[in-house]
């Protein structure tokens, strides 16, 4: 277990492209959680607000990413 943790922390993970794209999900979730934790006065509102914000950011980012990829492919 300690060896696995040390390997994790010392060497970069060999990630392929689709795995790198998936890492957008936890990052967007973190941004949504912090943003909504700051914004919402009532703590009960946070989970639903986080979910809506997370879905919006993720869809927006993937749409922008796909659009840029298409432009790149068309120009190449």
């Amino acid at each position: 277990m300690i060896e696995l943790l040390a390997t994790l922390m010392i060497n970069p993970l060999p990630l392929v492209r689709w795995q790198q794209a998936l890492l957008l999900l936890p990052l967007c979730l973190c941004i949504s959680i912090i943003y909504k934790t700051i914004k919402c006065e009532n703590l009960r509102e946070i989970p639903m607000a986080v979910l809506k914000n997370w879905i919006t950011i993720v869809i927006g980012m993937y749409v922008v990413g796909i659009a840029l990829l298409l432009i790149y492919e068309l120009l190449a």
């Binding site: 994790l8 922390m9 010392i10 060497n11 970069p12 993970l13 890492l23």
Partner: peptide
């Protein structure tokens, strides 16, 4: 940090 490694 776990994804990229400490020194990187």
């Amino acid at each position: 940090v776990a994804v990229g490694g400490l020194s990187n």
